[in-house]
Design a protein around this nucleic acid. Sequence first.
DNA 1: CGCTGCGGGTTTT
DNA 2: AAAACCCGCAGCG
Length: 402
Amino acid sequence: MLKGADDVVMEQEDSASQHGEITSWDINDIKLPQDVRQIDWFQEWPDSYIKRIYSSEDKNAQKHHSSWAMRNTNNHNSRILKKSCLGVVVCGNDCSTLDGRKIYLRPAICDKARQNNSVRKCCPNCNGPLQLLSCRGHGGYPVTNFWRHEGQFIFFQSKGAHDHPRPETKIEAEARRSVQKAQTAFSPSYPRLKRIQETESLTGAMPTQKALPLLLSKPDAYMLPANFRGYLSKSSREPMLDSCCGRPPYPGAAGEDGGSGEASTWSRSPAFGRTPSAGRPGRGPAIPLCAAPSPQHCAHPGTQHVPPVTKSSHHPFRPSAGPFGDESCEENPPLAHSSSGLPLPPYPAPEGSPCPRASGAPHHRPFWAPARGSGGEGGEGGCCMGLSHCNDDTAFNLYPLW
DNA sequence: CGCTGCGGGTTTT
DNA sequence: AAAACCCGCAGCG
């Protein structure tokens, strides 16, 4: 049954996404279509059951990038690269920054790195323990992404809908890391303090507003992924990465949950009815991370719908992405937030259509979102969104700040 | 140091 | 057999 639901979603996605051309193929097919008429734009936040065909020249596609924290998974098939989602690291205290944003850090891809991070990191905002919110968007298991190179195309297929907020992007995480490193170097003795300071800058005191947006997201505005909805409530989360500060979550901080003490908030209730069958695989340990700020991306509405083949230049995502970004449509159920990324590109209107920009509410934009009126939300159209879009400028300019 | 890809191996369904 | 996952190794930036 659960499966049925997924299938349905999938079908819908298919037709919606490749509008016009029906994506009849499956990543596991012996032969994939080579008469592709339209290539898709690279999507940094692919979600739900989608399929995409990128140009083999698309740098991001070549690197199998994703803004979600995806780790390689051995599927014993050298022709198809499989990656599974690691989820997102959240504050165990469910704290919010001064401007009401939540902290969503990117879990390290490498197991070892995750452990390291956990040891000395804590919430950049409240200094509390961090908790790994694992992804269970695919029948109780992490969302999986598949990549396959065939001829001049790179086929991409994702299975499952992320049931957690978006983590910071790779660029952001890297920036954060370097900043921390630098700071640590300066004052080894008071790392904690420093961190606090950093946090402050992050949360509010930052000079550049753009900069901040990074890891925080506004609760109100932030929409969770389709599956995500039920989540925040109590916790059943993963272990919690504490480690750091040892400090137990503040009592009050947690808010509602009275007790559990642990990370209160996040729990994933079965978001739709589709809960995994039974148990969730007990997944591993959580990983702690903590970090500091990072640059954000903002994309400027490029508007142009350039050909898919991005020539991207140097940066990770920027190229292709365009205006889209947010898949904001979370309002729609599962497929909703699909990546609707592309607003209106020349291509198929991706799932975009499905998303009527829901209310005026800003979509959920992760941390960076400008959360503030003005440009930010307003546009769904676009402005800020995913990483790709960000220009280097933006991103890089920020770095210095940290 | 961390990301990424590969591939052997195990466990569960 | 398929899928999820663990682990180590190697290349790369």
